[in-house]
Design a protein around this nucleic acid. Sequence first.
DNA 1: CAGGTTGGTGTATAGACAGCATGTC
DNA 2: CTATACACCAACCTG
Length: 822
Amino acid sequence: MEPSSLSGLPAGVGEALEAEGVAELYPPQEAAVEAGVVDGESLVAAVPTASGKTLIAELAMLSSIERGGKALYIVPLRALASEKKAEFERWEEFGVTVGVSTGNYDSDGEWLASRDIIVATSEKVDSLIRNGAPWIDDLTCVVSDEVHLVDDSHRGPTLEVTLAKLRRVNPGLQTVALSATVGNADVIADWLDAELVESDWRPIELRTGVHFGNAIEFDDGSRREVPVERGADQTAELVADALDTEEDGQGGSSLVFVNSRRNAESSARKLTDVTGPRLTGDERDRLRELAEEIRGVSDTDTSEDLADAVEEGSAFHHAGLASEHRSLVEDAFRDRLIKCVSATPTLAAGVNTPARRVIVRDWRRYDGEFGGMQPLDVLEVHQMCGRAGRPGLDPYGEAVLLASDADTREELFDRYVWAEAEPVRSKLAAEPALRTHVLATVASGFAATREGLLSFLDNTLYATQTDDEGRLAAVTDTVLDYLDVNGFVERDRDGGSEGLAATGIGHTVSRLYLDPMSAAEILDGLRTVADGADDEGAAGDFVPADGAGPAPDAGAEADADDSGFTTYTRADEEGGDPAAEAGEPDAAAAPAVTPLGLYHLVSRTPDTYELYLKSGDREEYTEVCYERETEFLGDVPSEYEDVRFEDWLAALKTARLLEDWANEVDEDRIAERYGVGPGDIRGKVDTAEWLLRAAETLARDVEGVDGDTVVRVREARKRLEYGVREELLDLAGVRNVGRKRARRLYEAGIESRADLREADKAVVLGALRGRERTAERILENAGREDPSLDGVDPDRSASAAATAGADADGDGDGQASLGDFG
DNA sequence: CAGGTTGGTGTATAGACAGCATGTC
DNA sequence: CTATACACCAACCTG
């Protein structure tokens, strides 16, 4: 079938596709057309990666737009959103407009309502629905990319509920779901009332095999000799073999999947021995430039190690990298400059980074809950293997699993090569998932009664799949109790049916996109500093009669409610009286609100991913816990009796990381001190910023919380945003002034935006190390009337003072030098 | 005796979405 | 609990 023979697309699109080189639709695409994608028919396409799924989606969206509609493309990752946007923008010449909306990025600042195609993450779509984005009603086509992720226990329910809501709002909606090949695509199709196109067809041949001893055995029966000398590294030999096999005039790149960050880093280091000697002079030059760019992203060891490897044509890739690191590596790998990437699963599901050869080195991964090594899911391994074969570059792709003995070889064939991926199973019927979605469903008006709620939930994949009719209802009731007790919903049990409505605070929580449990924790913490609670309520705050937690209000009813909530939140433990032992601060009045207290408050919510407590950390943070006891908002669990204590310490570790960041401790010191990468630091800071912004909003709704507390919350948040101490907040707010420049200016005596407008230009220039253009921009951004620095000589003393400060901070003991700042 | 080898022990372990209003060194 | 890599350290061997 030729693209130009398709009807229903905007004029010229078919021809444009042919001009792109799509002379003929791929078989799965043709099957999709036959199933009616261009006629508004819903469809589930379960086909391998890189077999033209995106074009199926484009055909659906473009034909829908041609009929006067509007399309939404849901992606699982933010990084994919921009990738897809760029891809879809080639239709702009046919009058089709594209917009993106993700948590950290909205396109162009233009109204999404005017866009024909909107690309967004599932959470963002969920949030937009909750906040009543007007264009949701106008959608005629929704595409869900990687829909098999409904299986994910954390994020799957969001996708599932979001699709159910979109379909509820708009009954005629065309739903196109793109999935990897999974065990039960038919069930997904059933759920979405969609046609099913299922296929193993790939445009580039993929051979999957297992290497053991001196050869790879492939699934098609072929065999390739790759000898491994005794003591030599199996992975290295396979990477070398791919590089030495020229197709298209060049050796093939490899992608190595390993099971931990550390393994990714050490693998990349080892593989430099393979890639380094095979580089051309020109490649070396370009790689050196790239390495410099990488070093420029961050000052951490991680950054340095990555740059060192990259200079030799090898790289690692995992979530500890800063996002700039990641894209630099991905781009250079796609450009064939980096020959080999050792990666954790980040790369299996992320942006498109194909390689000639994929090597799955580790097929088991440590699972803390399980307490040992668990084999990877078949689907996950298939996704990794699917990265083999670069369209247009390789005549074939090879995926190789590594076995160290004959038994393992057989196991790998059985478990992964011949096996079908697991069936997808909805994870909706779990409390954490339902807690947030039940509230949102009620708050955004999708259900006004318990029955209405259950009937809405009947449109989910879970309902389609389950045999256990009562389970969803049972969990829903548990969750409704929780939401009721915490004051997020009101129930009206009059008559036969039970009415449901979100309270004011319930609406706020839903719109803020908070997990209700996070909101409860934050509210609980804020109430401990509410005025009403200080004096009369102080005793009640810290020594609850029933050991259940703070009781902010004097009223008997409120007491009952709050103790109920607290008990419920921590339902997994013994009652006891945790607060009495360790958690009873001396403070008679409400504690002063400190940044650490606030950072701890948001760090202990379920919306923050916990930092791992290493050996020795327990002791260290227990000590900190006592030293800074008065700063915590809420009762401290008992060190000896309370299983929550461990989590409390983990949150404290996170809070300390945030505090360090806000105290201008250098990135590399933080990385070292907490055993994290630059990407983790950014991630933690972002999350905390987001939660503190939510806390600020919530604080306004808590009775008794004064304006001063709100200001402290805002200040703690802004200090995270800029990564500075209090005295630099004003300066750091000036564009082009970050934590480093602000500190240098401050040391030179320029302490505020106003100072910038009036200060001696020579001093400014000196503090900024003589960078004229930068200094001019900063002066301009500070609102100075005459920012020009023509003929100004930098004041050396300003520069010297600033440099001394920065150096001490960088090299010496961070804590000691920070004393100078305070 | 310096310097290297071997072997036992201890430790640690993947990923990443959301709000809001604009920009690091 | 199930694995594996690595850092660390001590006992041991060798030129």
